[in-house]
Design a protein around this nucleic acid. Structure first.
Lengths: 221, 221
DNA sequence: ACATAGATACCGACCGGATGGTATTTATAT
DNA sequence: ATATAAATACCATCCGGTCGGTATCTATGT
Protein backbone atom coordinates (compact mmCIF):
# COMPACT_ATOMS: atom_id res chain seq x y z
CA UNK A 1 0.00 0.00 0.00
CA UNK A 2 1.92 3.01 -1.22
CA UNK A 3 1.53 6.11 0.84
CA UNK A 4 0.09 9.11 -0.98
CA UNK A 5 2.67 11.15 -2.80
CA UNK A 6 2.67 14.53 -4.45
CA UNK A 7 1.93 12.89 -7.79
CA UNK A 8 -0.69 10.63 -6.29
CA UNK A 9 -2.28 12.65 -3.54
CA UNK A 10 -5.35 10.55 -2.77
CA UNK A 11 -6.34 12.87 0.03
CA UNK A 12 -3.76 15.63 -0.25
CA UNK A 13 -0.35 15.69 1.34
CA UNK A 14 0.34 15.01 4.99
CA UNK A 15 0.56 18.67 5.94
CA UNK A 16 -2.84 19.48 4.49
CA UNK A 17 -4.38 16.38 6.02
CA UNK A 18 -2.97 17.37 9.40
CA UNK A 19 -4.37 20.88 9.09
CA UNK A 20 -7.78 19.54 8.15
CA UNK A 21 -7.62 17.10 11.04
CA UNK A 22 -6.67 19.93 13.38
CA UNK A 23 -9.60 21.99 12.15
CA UNK A 24 -12.06 19.16 12.80
CA UNK A 25 -10.66 17.61 15.96
CA UNK A 26 -9.89 20.86 17.75
CA UNK A 27 -13.37 22.14 17.03
CA UNK A 28 -14.72 19.01 18.71
CA UNK A 29 -12.35 18.66 21.64
CA UNK A 30 -10.52 21.94 22.02
CA UNK A 31 -6.81 22.51 21.57
CA UNK A 32 -5.40 21.32 24.87
CA UNK A 33 -7.45 18.11 24.93
CA UNK A 34 -6.35 17.22 21.42
CA UNK A 35 -3.26 15.04 21.50
CA UNK A 36 -0.76 14.65 18.71
CA UNK A 37 -1.82 11.03 18.45
CA UNK A 38 -5.42 12.18 17.95
CA UNK A 39 -4.31 14.43 15.13
CA UNK A 40 -2.07 11.88 13.46
CA UNK A 41 -4.70 9.18 13.69
CA UNK A 42 -7.39 11.47 12.28
CA UNK A 43 -5.08 12.57 9.47
CA UNK A 44 -3.93 9.03 8.75
CA UNK A 45 -0.34 10.08 9.30
CA UNK A 46 2.45 9.11 11.64
CA UNK A 47 4.24 11.22 14.18
CA UNK A 48 7.28 11.40 11.99
CA UNK A 49 5.23 13.21 9.38
CA UNK A 50 3.83 15.53 11.99
CA UNK A 51 7.20 16.66 13.26
CA UNK A 52 8.51 16.91 9.75
CA UNK A 53 5.95 19.60 8.96
CA UNK A 54 5.53 21.29 12.34
CA UNK A 55 8.10 22.17 14.93
CA UNK A 56 5.77 21.40 17.82
CA UNK A 57 2.15 21.44 18.85
CA UNK A 58 2.06 25.22 19.18
CA UNK A 59 3.34 25.65 15.62
CA UNK A 60 0.52 23.44 14.41
CA UNK A 61 -1.93 25.66 16.27
CA UNK A 62 -0.57 28.72 14.51
CA UNK A 63 -0.66 26.98 11.13
CA UNK A 64 -4.19 25.73 11.76
CA UNK A 65 -5.37 29.27 12.49
CA UNK A 66 -3.68 30.54 9.31
CA UNK A 67 -5.22 27.67 7.34
CA UNK A 68 -8.59 28.59 8.78
CA UNK A 69 -8.14 32.21 7.76
CA UNK A 70 -7.26 31.21 4.21
CA UNK A 71 -10.03 28.69 3.67
CA UNK A 72 -12.78 30.75 5.27
CA UNK A 73 -11.88 33.93 3.42
CA UNK A 74 -12.02 32.01 0.15
CA UNK A 75 -15.34 30.52 1.22
CA UNK A 76 -16.89 33.89 2.03
CA UNK A 77 -15.40 35.53 -1.04
CA UNK A 78 -17.38 33.10 -3.19
CA UNK A 79 -20.64 33.52 -1.29
CA UNK A 80 -23.58 35.00 -3.21
CA UNK A 81 -24.30 37.97 -0.95
CA UNK A 82 -21.65 40.03 -2.74
CA UNK A 83 -23.89 40.21 -5.80
CA UNK A 84 -26.27 42.79 -4.35
CA UNK A 85 -25.94 46.30 -5.69
CA UNK A 86 -26.82 48.06 -2.46
CA UNK A 87 -24.12 47.90 0.24
CA UNK A 88 -26.74 47.45 2.96
CA UNK A 89 -28.17 44.53 1.04
CA UNK A 90 -24.71 43.03 0.92
CA UNK A 91 -24.32 43.49 4.67
CA UNK A 92 -27.72 42.00 5.41
CA UNK A 93 -26.96 39.27 2.91
CA UNK A 94 -23.82 38.44 4.82
CA UNK A 95 -25.75 38.09 8.06
CA UNK A 96 -28.42 35.98 6.37
CA UNK A 97 -25.67 33.81 4.92
CA UNK A 98 -24.09 33.37 8.34
CA UNK A 99 -27.45 32.24 9.62
CA UNK A 100 -27.91 29.81 6.72
CA UNK A 101 -24.63 28.04 7.31
CA UNK A 102 -25.52 27.29 10.93
CA UNK A 103 -26.41 23.77 9.94
CA UNK A 104 -25.29 20.25 10.76
CA UNK A 105 -23.19 19.26 13.73
CA UNK A 106 -21.83 21.88 16.10
CA UNK A 107 -18.23 21.10 15.21
CA UNK A 108 -19.06 21.74 11.56
CA UNK A 109 -20.31 25.31 11.79
CA UNK A 110 -18.56 26.71 14.84
CA UNK A 111 -15.38 28.73 14.67
CA UNK A 112 -11.98 27.12 15.11
CA UNK A 113 -10.14 30.31 15.98
CA UNK A 114 -12.77 31.47 18.44
CA UNK A 115 -12.50 28.15 20.22
CA UNK A 116 -8.72 28.20 20.32
CA UNK A 117 -8.57 31.81 21.47
CA UNK A 118 -10.44 31.00 24.66
CA UNK A 119 -7.96 28.32 25.58
CA UNK A 120 -4.62 29.77 24.60
CA UNK A 121 -4.95 33.53 24.98
CA UNK A 122 -2.51 33.54 27.86
CA UNK A 123 -0.48 30.38 27.42
CA UNK A 124 0.24 30.55 23.67
CA UNK A 125 0.45 34.15 22.44
CA UNK A 126 1.54 33.03 18.97
CA UNK A 127 -1.65 31.03 18.47
CA UNK A 128 -3.73 33.81 19.95
CA UNK A 129 -2.26 36.31 17.49
CA UNK A 130 -2.95 34.00 14.55
CA UNK A 131 -6.54 33.59 15.75
CA UNK A 132 -6.94 37.33 16.17
CA UNK A 133 -5.64 37.90 12.65
CA UNK A 134 -8.25 35.51 11.31
CA UNK A 135 -11.16 37.02 13.23
CA UNK A 136 -10.33 40.66 12.65
CA UNK A 137 -9.22 40.07 9.08
CA UNK A 138 -12.64 38.64 8.39
CA UNK A 139 -14.38 41.48 10.21
CA UNK A 140 -12.43 43.98 8.12
CA UNK A 141 -13.99 42.59 4.94
CA UNK A 142 -17.34 43.95 6.17
CA UNK A 143 -16.18 47.49 6.78
CA UNK A 144 -16.40 48.86 3.21
CA UNK A 145 -20.03 47.81 2.87
CA UNK A 146 -20.89 49.19 6.29
CA UNK A 147 -19.24 52.47 5.49
CA UNK A 148 -20.93 52.70 2.10
CA UNK A 149 -24.29 51.86 3.64
CA UNK A 150 -23.83 54.58 6.23
CA UNK A 151 -23.17 57.14 3.52
CA UNK A 152 -25.98 55.90 1.31
CA UNK A 153 -28.47 56.06 4.15
CA UNK A 154 -27.18 59.28 5.63
CA UNK A 155 -26.27 57.74 8.97
CA UNK A 156 -24.18 59.99 11.18
CA UNK A 157 -23.41 57.73 14.09
CA UNK A 158 -21.36 57.59 17.27
CA UNK A 159 -20.02 54.20 16.20
CA UNK A 160 -17.50 53.29 13.55
CA UNK A 161 -17.84 50.78 10.70
CA UNK A 162 -15.03 48.81 12.29
CA UNK A 163 -16.79 48.54 15.63
CA UNK A 164 -20.00 47.30 14.01
CA UNK A 165 -18.06 44.77 11.95
CA UNK A 166 -16.35 43.52 15.10
CA UNK A 167 -19.63 43.46 16.98
CA UNK A 168 -21.13 41.18 14.35
CA UNK A 169 -18.30 38.75 15.01
CA UNK A 170 -18.89 38.98 18.74
CA UNK A 171 -22.54 38.04 18.24
CA UNK A 172 -21.55 35.05 16.12
CA UNK A 173 -18.90 33.85 18.55
CA UNK A 174 -21.28 34.20 21.46
CA UNK A 175 -24.03 32.45 19.52
CA UNK A 176 -21.70 29.50 19.00
CA UNK A 177 -21.01 29.24 22.71
CA UNK A 178 -24.69 29.20 23.57
CA UNK A 179 -25.34 26.60 20.89
CA UNK A 180 -22.62 24.43 22.39
CA UNK A 181 -24.08 24.88 25.85
CA UNK A 182 -27.51 23.67 24.74
CA UNK A 183 -26.56 21.42 21.86
CA UNK A 184 -29.18 23.34 19.90
CA UNK A 185 -28.37 25.19 16.67
CA UNK A 186 -31.54 27.25 16.71
CA UNK A 187 -30.42 29.29 19.68
CA UNK A 188 -27.51 30.52 17.60
CA UNK A 189 -29.80 31.43 14.74
CA UNK A 190 -31.97 33.41 17.16
CA UNK A 191 -29.03 35.60 18.06
CA UNK A 192 -28.23 36.14 14.40
CA UNK A 193 -31.84 37.25 13.99
CA UNK A 194 -31.29 39.84 16.70
CA UNK A 195 -28.15 41.01 14.94
CA UNK A 196 -30.11 41.33 11.72
CA UNK A 197 -32.81 43.29 13.51
CA UNK A 198 -30.18 45.58 14.99
CA UNK A 199 -28.83 46.35 11.54
CA UNK A 200 -32.29 47.05 10.20
CA UNK A 201 -32.97 49.45 13.05
CA UNK A 202 -29.57 51.12 12.76
CA UNK A 203 -30.02 51.82 9.08
CA UNK A 204 -33.66 52.77 9.38
CA UNK A 205 -34.97 50.02 7.16
CA UNK A 206 -38.27 48.45 8.17
CA UNK A 207 -37.97 44.97 9.59
CA UNK A 208 -40.40 42.23 8.62
CA UNK A 209 -43.92 41.89 10.03
CA UNK A 210 -44.64 42.49 13.68
CA UNK A 211 -41.52 44.47 14.37
CA UNK A 212 -41.62 47.77 16.22
CA UNK A 213 -43.35 50.53 14.22
CA UNK A 214 -41.53 50.99 10.96
CA UNK A 215 -40.09 54.30 9.95
CA UNK A 216 -41.31 54.16 6.39
CA UNK A 217 -38.00 53.11 4.90
CA UNK A 218 -37.88 51.36 1.57
CA UNK A 219 -38.81 47.71 1.60
CA UNK A 220 -36.33 44.93 1.02
CA UNK A 221 -35.56 44.05 -2.60
CA UNK B 1 1.67 24.64 61.99
CA UNK B 2 -1.86 23.34 62.41
CA UNK B 3 -3.86 23.01 59.27
CA UNK B 4 -7.09 24.99 59.08
CA UNK B 5 -10.03 23.24 60.65
CA UNK B 6 -13.73 23.88 60.67
CA UNK B 7 -13.31 25.87 63.86
CA UNK B 8 -10.28 27.68 62.51
CA UNK B 9 -10.81 28.14 58.80
CA UNK B 10 -8.07 30.66 58.05
CA UNK B 11 -8.85 30.65 54.33
CA UNK B 12 -11.97 28.56 54.17
CA UNK B 13 -12.08 24.83 53.87
CA UNK B 14 -10.27 22.83 51.23
CA UNK B 15 -13.33 22.38 49.08
CA UNK B 16 -14.02 26.10 48.82
CA UNK B 17 -10.37 26.86 48.21
CA UNK B 18 -10.33 24.31 45.39
CA UNK B 19 -13.44 25.83 43.80
CA UNK B 20 -11.95 29.30 43.97
CA UNK B 21 -8.72 27.99 42.50
CA UNK B 22 -10.66 26.28 39.73
CA UNK B 23 -12.49 29.52 38.96
CA UNK B 24 -9.26 31.45 38.64
CA UNK B 25 -6.94 28.92 37.04
CA UNK B 26 -9.46 27.59 34.51
CA UNK B 27 -10.32 31.12 33.42
CA UNK B 28 -6.62 31.64 32.71
CA UNK B 29 -5.66 28.30 31.19
CA UNK B 30 -8.85 26.54 30.24
CA UNK B 31 -10.17 23.30 31.70
CA UNK B 32 -8.13 20.71 29.83
CA UNK B 33 -4.83 22.50 30.31
CA UNK B 34 -5.40 22.82 34.04
CA UNK B 35 -3.87 19.89 35.89
CA UNK B 36 -4.94 18.68 39.29
CA UNK B 37 -1.51 19.67 40.55
CA UNK B 38 -2.14 23.20 39.27
CA UNK B 39 -5.39 23.32 41.19
CA UNK B 40 -4.00 21.81 44.39
CA UNK B 41 -1.00 24.10 44.33
CA UNK B 42 -3.15 27.17 43.72
CA UNK B 43 -5.53 26.13 46.50
CA UNK B 44 -2.73 25.21 48.89
CA UNK B 45 -4.13 21.73 49.25
CA UNK B 46 -2.90 18.22 48.57
CA UNK B 47 -4.21 15.66 46.15
CA UNK B 48 -5.63 13.70 49.00
CA UNK B 49 -7.87 16.61 49.85
CA UNK B 50 -8.89 16.99 46.23
CA UNK B 51 -10.06 13.42 45.90
CA UNK B 52 -11.70 13.55 49.27
CA UNK B 53 -14.03 16.31 48.04
CA UNK B 54 -14.37 15.43 44.34
CA UNK B 55 -14.71 12.08 42.67
CA UNK B 56 -12.60 13.11 39.69
CA UNK B 57 -11.66 16.06 37.54
CA UNK B 58 -15.01 16.11 35.77
CA UNK B 59 -16.85 16.32 39.09
CA UNK B 60 -14.75 19.33 39.99
CA UNK B 61 -15.75 20.93 36.69
CA UNK B 62 -19.41 20.41 37.48
CA UNK B 63 -18.96 21.76 41.00
CA UNK B 64 -17.01 24.75 39.72
CA UNK B 65 -19.83 25.63 37.31
CA UNK B 66 -22.36 25.34 40.11
CA UNK B 67 -20.17 27.45 42.38
CA UNK B 68 -19.94 30.03 39.60
CA UNK B 69 -23.72 30.07 39.23
CA UNK B 70 -24.18 30.62 42.97
CA UNK B 71 -21.59 33.33 43.42
CA UNK B 72 -22.47 35.28 40.29
CA UNK B 73 -26.19 35.21 40.93
CA UNK B 74 -25.54 36.59 44.42
CA UNK B 75 -23.25 39.21 42.92
CA UNK B 76 -25.82 40.40 40.37
CA UNK B 77 -28.67 40.24 42.89
CA UNK B 78 -26.85 42.86 44.96
CA UNK B 79 -26.04 45.12 42.01
CA UNK B 80 -27.59 48.60 42.03
CA UNK B 81 -29.43 48.43 38.70
CA UNK B 82 -32.39 46.73 40.38
CA UNK B 83 -33.25 50.00 42.13
CA UNK B 84 -34.74 51.66 39.04
CA UNK B 85 -38.52 51.94 38.94
CA UNK B 86 -38.87 51.51 35.20
CA UNK B 87 -38.20 47.97 33.91
CA UNK B 88 -36.41 49.32 30.83
CA UNK B 89 -34.16 51.33 33.10
CA UNK B 90 -33.37 48.16 35.01
CA UNK B 91 -32.55 46.36 31.77
CA UNK B 92 -30.35 49.18 30.51
CA UNK B 93 -28.84 49.43 33.98
CA UNK B 94 -27.91 45.75 33.79
CA UNK B 95 -26.13 46.29 30.49
CA UNK B 96 -24.35 49.36 31.81
CA UNK B 97 -23.30 47.35 34.85
CA UNK B 98 -21.96 44.55 32.67
CA UNK B 99 -19.91 47.16 30.84
CA UNK B 100 -18.62 48.64 34.08
CA UNK B 101 -17.31 45.35 35.40
CA UNK B 102 -15.20 44.77 32.32
CA UNK B 103 -12.15 45.90 34.22
CA UNK B 104 -8.80 44.51 35.28
CA UNK B 105 -7.19 41.38 33.86
CA UNK B 106 -9.00 39.26 31.31
CA UNK B 107 -9.18 36.28 33.64
CA UNK B 108 -10.91 38.48 36.21
CA UNK B 109 -13.92 39.61 34.18
CA UNK B 110 -14.41 36.82 31.66
CA UNK B 111 -16.89 34.00 32.14
CA UNK B 112 -15.81 30.66 33.60
CA UNK B 113 -18.75 28.70 32.26
CA UNK B 114 -18.52 30.20 28.78
CA UNK B 115 -14.88 29.19 28.66
CA UNK B 116 -15.54 25.67 29.88
CA UNK B 117 -18.49 25.16 27.55
CA UNK B 118 -16.30 25.63 24.48
CA UNK B 119 -13.93 22.93 25.62
CA UNK B 120 -16.18 20.27 27.05
CA UNK B 121 -19.45 20.50 25.15
CA UNK B 122 -18.86 17.11 23.55
CA UNK B 123 -16.43 15.37 25.85
CA UNK B 124 -18.02 16.16 29.24
CA UNK B 125 -21.81 16.52 28.97
CA UNK B 126 -22.17 16.83 32.74
CA UNK B 127 -19.96 19.92 32.82
CA UNK B 128 -21.66 21.31 29.75
CA UNK B 129 -25.07 20.97 31.39
CA UNK B 130 -23.86 22.70 34.55
CA UNK B 131 -22.47 25.53 32.43
CA UNK B 132 -25.70 25.81 30.49
CA UNK B 133 -27.67 25.98 33.72
CA UNK B 134 -25.49 28.87 34.88
CA UNK B 135 -25.74 30.83 31.63
CA UNK B 136 -29.44 30.35 31.01
CA UNK B 137 -30.33 30.69 34.66
CA UNK B 138 -28.68 34.09 34.62
CA UNK B 139 -30.38 35.04 31.35
CA UNK B 140 -33.73 34.10 32.84
CA UNK B 141 -33.31 36.74 35.54
CA UNK B 142 -33.58 39.37 32.80
CA UNK B 143 -36.82 38.12 31.30
CA UNK B 144 -39.32 39.72 33.72
CA UNK B 145 -37.86 43.18 33.14
CA UNK B 146 -37.79 42.67 29.38
CA UNK B 147 -41.38 41.51 29.36
CA UNK B 148 -42.49 44.38 31.59
CA UNK B 149 -40.62 46.88 29.42
CA UNK B 150 -42.31 45.48 26.31
CA UNK B 151 -45.71 45.97 27.88
CA UNK B 152 -44.88 49.40 29.25
CA UNK B 153 -43.62 50.58 25.87
CA UNK B 154 -46.28 48.85 23.80
CA UNK B 155 -43.86 46.68 21.88
CA UNK B 156 -45.48 43.93 19.85
CA UNK B 157 -42.50 42.09 18.53
CA UNK B 158 -41.59 38.97 16.61
CA UNK B 159 -39.04 38.11 19.30
CA UNK B 160 -39.55 36.80 22.81
CA UNK B 161 -38.22 38.18 26.08
CA UNK B 162 -36.29 34.93 26.50
CA UNK B 163 -34.57 35.27 23.13
CA UNK B 164 -33.49 38.83 23.86
CA UNK B 165 -32.19 37.81 27.27
CA UNK B 166 -30.22 34.99 25.69
CA UNK B 167 -28.96 37.28 22.95
CA UNK B 168 -27.54 39.64 25.55
CA UNK B 169 -25.53 36.74 26.92
CA UNK B 170 -24.33 35.84 23.45
CA UNK B 171 -23.05 39.38 22.97
CA UNK B 172 -21.20 39.24 26.28
CA UNK B 173 -19.66 35.83 25.60
CA UNK B 174 -18.57 36.91 22.16
CA UNK B 175 -17.18 40.16 23.52
CA UNK B 176 -15.03 38.16 25.93
CA UNK B 177 -13.61 36.08 23.10
CA UNK B 178 -12.67 39.15 21.10
CA UNK B 179 -11.10 40.73 24.16
CA UNK B 180 -9.03 37.61 24.68
CA UNK B 181 -7.98 37.63 21.05
CA UNK B 182 -6.70 41.18 21.27
CA UNK B 183 -5.79 41.40 24.92
CA UNK B 184 -7.83 44.60 24.92
CA UNK B 185 -10.77 45.14 27.25
CA UNK B 186 -12.14 48.08 25.29
CA UNK B 187 -13.17 45.93 22.36
CA UNK B 188 -15.53 44.08 24.68
CA UNK B 189 -16.98 47.32 25.94
CA UNK B 190 -17.60 48.42 22.36
CA UNK B 191 -19.79 45.39 21.77
CA UNK B 192 -21.70 46.08 24.95
CA UNK B 193 -22.27 49.58 23.60
CA UNK B 194 -23.80 48.07 20.48
CA UNK B 195 -26.02 45.88 22.63
CA UNK B 196 -27.12 48.94 24.57
CA UNK B 197 -27.85 50.77 21.30
CA UNK B 198 -29.89 47.80 20.10
CA UNK B 199 -32.02 47.90 23.22
CA UNK B 200 -32.59 51.63 22.86
CA UNK B 201 -33.69 51.18 19.26
CA UNK B 202 -35.88 48.18 20.06
CA UNK B 203 -37.74 50.04 22.77
CA UNK B 204 -37.91 53.29 20.85
CA UNK B 205 -35.96 55.28 23.36
CA UNK B 206 -33.65 57.91 21.92
CA UNK B 207 -29.96 57.06 22.20
CA UNK B 208 -27.43 59.69 23.17
CA UNK B 209 -26.03 62.33 20.86
CA UNK B 210 -25.32 61.54 17.24
CA UNK B 211 -27.43 58.44 17.02
CA UNK B 212 -29.84 57.85 14.16
CA UNK B 213 -32.83 60.20 14.22
CA UNK B 214 -34.69 59.74 17.44
CA UNK B 215 -38.33 58.79 17.51
CA UNK B 216 -39.28 61.34 20.12
CA UNK B 217 -39.44 58.86 22.95
CA UNK B 218 -39.23 60.03 26.54
CA UNK B 219 -35.76 60.93 27.71
CA UNK B 220 -33.79 58.92 30.23
CA UNK B 221 -34.61 59.52 33.90
C1' DA C 1 -15.92 15.16 83.16
C1' DC C 2 -13.99 11.75 80.58
C1' DA C 3 -13.09 7.81 77.68
C1' DT C 4 -14.25 5.60 73.52
C1' DA C 5 -15.62 5.02 68.85
C1' DG C 6 -16.90 6.18 64.53
C1' DA C 7 -17.07 9.65 61.02
C1' DT C 8 -15.04 13.36 58.53
C1' DA C 9 -11.17 15.96 56.66
C1' DC C 10 -6.83 15.86 55.02
C1' DC C 11 -2.05 14.20 53.76
C1' DG C 12 1.50 12.67 50.35
C1' DA C 13 3.96 8.79 48.31
C1' DC C 14 3.12 6.01 44.57
C1' DC C 15 1.36 3.84 40.00
C1' DG C 16 0.35 2.95 35.15
C1' DG C 17 -0.80 4.81 31.09
C1' DA C 18 -0.73 8.72 28.14
C1' DT C 19 1.79 12.50 25.93
C1' DG C 20 4.91 15.63 23.63
C1' DG C 21 8.93 15.07 21.53
C1' DT C 22 13.43 12.59 19.47
C1' DA C 23 16.47 9.49 16.78
C1' DT C 24 16.95 6.64 13.17
C1' DT C 25 15.58 4.63 9.05
C1' DT C 26 13.13 4.20 4.59
C1' DA C 27 10.84 5.78 0.52
C1' DT C 28 10.05 9.18 -3.18
C1' DA C 29 10.98 13.24 -6.37
C1' DT C 30 14.11 15.74 -9.16
C1' DA D 1 23.05 11.76 -5.91
C1' DT D 2 20.70 14.53 -3.01
C1' DA D 3 17.04 16.74 -0.75
C1' DT D 4 12.54 16.11 0.85
C1' DA D 5 8.81 13.43 2.87
C1' DA D 6 7.24 10.14 5.80
C1' DA D 7 7.44 5.74 8.81
C1' DT D 8 8.82 3.43 13.17
C1' DA D 9 10.61 2.68 17.47
C1' DC D 10 11.62 4.78 21.46
C1' DC D 11 12.11 7.97 25.64
C1' DA D 12 11.49 11.11 29.72
C1' DT D 13 8.09 13.34 31.79
C1' DC D 14 3.58 14.33 33.16
C1' DC D 15 -0.93 13.48 34.80
C1' DG D 16 -5.17 11.64 36.55
C1' DG D 17 -6.10 8.71 39.94
C1' DT D 18 -5.19 5.25 44.12
C1' DC D 19 -4.21 4.04 48.71
C1' DG D 20 -2.76 3.60 53.33
C1' DG D 21 -2.37 6.49 56.92
C1' DT D 22 -3.08 10.62 60.37
C1' DA D 23 -5.42 14.45 62.56
C1' DT D 24 -9.64 16.47 64.01
C1' DC D 25 -14.59 16.60 64.97
C1' DT D 26 -19.01 14.67 66.91
C1' DA D 27 -21.84 11.54 69.51
C1' DT D 28 -22.62 8.71 73.21
C1' DG D 29 -22.28 6.05 77.45
C1' DT D 30 -21.03 6.23 82.10
Amino acid sequence: MPRPTKQNPERGDARTRLLEAARDVIRSQGFAATTLDDLCKSAGVTKGAFFHHFENKEALGVAAAAFWAETTSAFFAEAPYHDHDDPLDRLLGYVAFRKEIIEGDLAEFTCLVGTMTQEVYLSHPAIRDACAASIFGHAATLEPDIEAAMKAHGIAADWTPASLAVHSQAVLQGAFILAKATGDRTIARDSVDHLQRYLLLLFGRAPGRNGPRARGGQSHG
